[in-house]
Amino acid sequence: MKIIFILGKYNPSRCGISDYVDLLSKELIKNGHIVGIRSFDSLRELRQLARDLEEADLYSIQFAPYAFSKIGFAGNALRLLAKSLEAKSVHVTFHELWIGSYPGSPVKHTVIGWVQKYEILTFLKVTKPSLIYATNSAALHRLRKAGISAAYLYLFGNIPFSQSQISSDQSILKIGFFGTLYDSFPYDLLGERLKSIYRLTKRKIILLRIGRTRESQGLIKLKRMAESRGFDLFETGELSASEVSKEIQSCSLGISTTPYDVIGKSGATAALLEHRLPILTHDDGDTPQKHLIISKLFDDQIFQLDDIDGPGEIAKYIIQPKRKFINGVAYTAEEVLESLELASRS
């Protein structure tokens, strides 16, 4: 099968969607498929891509409004792409959807979101994808509310496993932060929970910021919390994927500051989970609880900050023998191929 991935700017190691396409493409090639990647960095390039679209058995659209256009909507360029894909075999994965649909969203975001939603629904109406995926609960819930039949697809981690000889110091509990540090995350509550874990385990808490760090309000809040609680905080700086894997393996617990309802779009959080770390995260309440989902691969590894019993459960988890790494790329590739086969039969 010849598969063409279509996405915005292709920039592996600097863009989560690019990392996703890069790793999934390699896995599909290993399975005997022909894969092409077509990307664009401007609406002019998107229009050219639509005009010059080559023949393929499947076109896999990796959709995110701000990856397709810096202003968040693509107008005629997106309509031209839809027209080029009409009557072809199309599969769409939504990494992000329209903005402005959360409680308390600014009026500007709501207005922009109306335009984005109209563009997305029009694109789907014209292309009639055989498969529509969303990588997180929030996107899945909004698509279904808009009358779109969509399925959950696990977005795997962006860090392959690299064998490590790191031996853990049983007197230390290393807590790993990998990925964006969101400023809306309740860092003070995190400090309380980590203190509870310290009291239960009697192990010194060390916080480790893994990978490239941008100065942000989230980082400032993390540093302030660490100082107030007496935790040491270290930053590794930019690392290779192999080095990141080894640093993750040196940790006993991971923290995801991505809200729980969109945690599925975080390749960094997936990397922590695939390395089998338990994860502390936070539900900001933007998506109704009954619509929250997580991959069944990791349902016993995720703990909520709001759960007062969480520290005790984490303390039990971290004394267990380390579990085997999960190859999320192979898992997702198999799911995609199985879904395509089922769709072709229907």
Score class of each variant (00 low, 15 high):
Glu247Ser: 13
Asn158Cys: 13
Leu53Gln: 10
Gln217His: 03
Glu96Arg: 04
Lys195Tyr: 15
Ala270His: 12
Asn327Pro: 08
Tyr152Arg: 06
Thr180Met: 08
Leu28Gly: 08
Ala64Val: 03
Leu233Ile: 15
Gly191Ser: 12
Gln62Asp: 11
Asp19Ser: 04
Ser228Trp: 05
Ala77Phe: 06
His141Cys: 10
Ala64Pro: 06
Tyr154Glu: 02
Ser18Ile: 03
Leu190Thr: 01
Val92Phe: 07
Ile172Cys: 11
Leu173Met: 12
Asp309Gln: 13
Gln304Ile: 13
Ser245Gln: 09
Leu58Gly: 05
Ile255Ala: 11
Ala134Met: 00
Asp300Tyr: 08
Glu86Pro: 05
Leu53Lys: 07
Lys195Ala: 12
Phe123Gln: 10
Arg14Tyr: 08
Ala77Tyr: 05
Ile220Phe: 14
Ile99Thr: 15
Ala151Val: 02
Phe303Arg: 11
Tyr152Thr: 04
His291Gln: 06
Gly157Arg: 02
Ser196Ile: 03
Glu227Gly: 02
Ala343Pro: 03
Ser242Asn: 13
Ala77Met: 07
Phe40His: 12
Ser295Val: 01
Gln217Glu: 15
Leu277Ser: 06
Gln304Glu: 14
Ala87Asp: 15
Leu305Thr: 01
Gly36Phe: 08
Gln301Tyr: 08
Ile293Phe: 13
Leu337Ile: 15
Phe231Asn: 02
Gly218Trp: 03
Glu96Tyr: 08
Leu305Asn: 02
Tyr10Glu: 01
Arg345Lys: 14
Ser184Thr: 13
Arg47Glu: 15
Val126Gly: 00
Asp57Glu: 15
Leu272Lys: 05
Ala67Asp: 04
Ile17Glu: 05
Val262Asn: 11
Glu192Ala: 02
Leu78Asn: 09
Ala226Asn: 07
Glu96Phe: 04
Arg345Glu: 11
Asp261Cys: 11
Ser105Ala: 15
Thr287Leu: 02
Gly147His: 06
Ala138Met: 11
Ala333Glu: 01
Thr127Cys: 12
Thr281His: 08
Asp169Gly: 11
Val244Arg: 06
Ser245Glu: 02
Ile172Pro: 00
Ala82Lys: 04
Phe231Gln: 09
Ala150Phe: 07
Glu45Val: 02
Pro259Gln: 09
Ser196Trp: 02
Ser295Ala: 13
Leu190Phe: 03
Thr269Ala: 13
Lys9Ala: 09
Glu334Phe: 04
Asp306Leu: 01
Tyr154Phe: 14
Pro259Arg: 01
Ile319Cys: 04
Ser164Gly: 06
Asn31Tyr: 00
Phe161Val: 10
Leu155Pro: 01
Ile255His: 05
Leu43Asp: 06
Arg323Glu: 14
Lys145Trp: 00
Pro103Tyr: 03
Ala50Tyr: 02
Lys265Ala: 12
Glu96Ser: 05
Leu80Met: 09
Leu23Pro: 03
Gln301Lys: 14
Ile318Gln: 13
Pro311Ile: 08
Ile263Cys: 07
Glu238Lys: 14
Glu235Leu: 14
Gln48Ala: 12
Gly147Trp: 03
Leu208Ala: 07
Arg203Val: 06
